[in-house]
Design a protein around this nucleic acid. Structure first.
Lengths: 219, 219
DNA sequence: TTGAGATTCAAACGACCGTTTAATACAATT
DNA sequence: AATTGTATTAAACGGTCGTTTGAATCTCAA
């Protein structure tokens, strides 16, 4: 049994050690992945003792679970902010709202609601036991929301294979603009400016709407 | 100076230790990345001594360089096999040839010419000093080939920003189907069957040609 | 003031990391 | 047979890893 109560008692009255650990770990895990960060790195960044990780989170993996959980929550609450607003628009406008609301956050390097994508990138190359949970709570809801829009545009059942393929085509284009350390290090002009990003969002919407309409005429 | 000559002399006449190390390291680095594999893992898989890595490759990073170099060469020779054949076709047919030739290799888990994509995935989340070299020799040639096709389809200059955006839209769709350990672990029905993959290739071609034609009418 | 529980801390644990060393085994040439 | 240069080997080096330990320190209730 570690500790459970918020923090009615502590040596100093400033931000609780647990919160500092969570904040530092979120930043470092998003940047370097679970295996690329040591608990000593996290403890140093949080100005805490190494043993505090085990005391407050029951080990490195427990801290990672807490980070992932809060990151998924941050993303989903960020989605609700602009997705619910367009719930009664045409599917074309819904797709535009999705992409223009999603892409700037995807491309931002300091948007807290997008850190989950960095965690997911590391999970792709080096999965942890948390991977299935991320897939279910961090990815599937988005996929299903997009599938609803696309199936209306295709005028077909949501489980039509063309829906899944179009969803991938849209999502792949958006995710490609998530900055990573490879492209930042290897390509000039990366990451993109805000103005370019807005033009890219417009491009993805037009490109994808035309693609979907073409796919709708087939099979 | 380590060794240079092929292997006129060795304790045993079987496959040279250097070649076994390179083969084992390619498989392991592609699977787990540079940081996720220890030289002891590689030596064990190659039935060699740990010190052999330093003797033949001047350290772990030297071995990684050799792996990356051979993987890029394998991919480029695989490209030439089907890209040069379509050099005088219409740009539409060239795009179809590119996608239908590229996607099955991307999606294959045992195609030696596609291991470079696994190495690149790890580089994205955790870059090594080899990252810039991979970008220049493993990525740029493909991008420029695609840009040539797209600029003909758009009927504009190759450095028009719309070209780069369409290239990303195509390449992002293709790369999304590269299997990774996250999706294999977290999603059912993954990776895709050969038949589904052929249908996906056709989808990407139709989706993208329609998208490009739409973009061609703008700006 | 005292006791109990929560929290922090320096230190140590065993395991693994990449690399180095020095001795040895081998084949080909003197 | 002796020498030379290449290749392999077991062992050890210093360092970092995640975790554990046990004592010290803090807050708050009795």
């Amino acid at each position: 049994m570690t500790a459970r109560r918020p923090s009615p008692n502590a040596r100093r009255p400033d931000a609780a050690t647990r919160e500092r650990l969570l904040a530092a770990a979120t930043r470092l895990f998003a940047q370097h992945g679970f295996g690329g960060v040591s608990v000593r790195d996290i403890a140093r960044a949080a100005r805490a003792n190494v043993a505090a990780v085990n005391y407050h989170f029951d080990g490195k993996l427990g801290l990672y679970r807490a980070v992932v959980h809060s990151a998924v929550q941050a993303m989903r609450s960020g989605d609700d902010a602009f997705l619910t607003a367009a719930s009664d628009a045409s599917p074309e406008e819904q797709l535009r709202t999705y992409v223009t609301g999603y892409l700037p956050r995807i491309a931002s390097t300091d948007d807290r609601t997008a850190w989950i994508h960095d965690l997911m990138r590391h999970e792709m190359s080096d999965p942890t036991p948390v991977a299935p949970w991320i897939a279910e709570h961090g990815i599937l809801p988005r996929i299903e929301y997009l599938a609803g829009i696309v199936s209306k545009l295709l005028d077909c059942r949501p489980n039509d294979k063309r829906v899944a393929r179009c969803v991938v085509s849209i999502q792949a284009q958006c995710l490609f603009y998530r900055p990573d350390r490879f492209r930042t290090a290897a390509f000039k002009g990366w990451p993109l400016s805000d103005a370019e990003l807005a033009a890219v969002a417009d491009h993805i919407v037009e490109f994808s709407l035309a693609g979907i309409k073409r796919i709708a005429t087939r099979q």
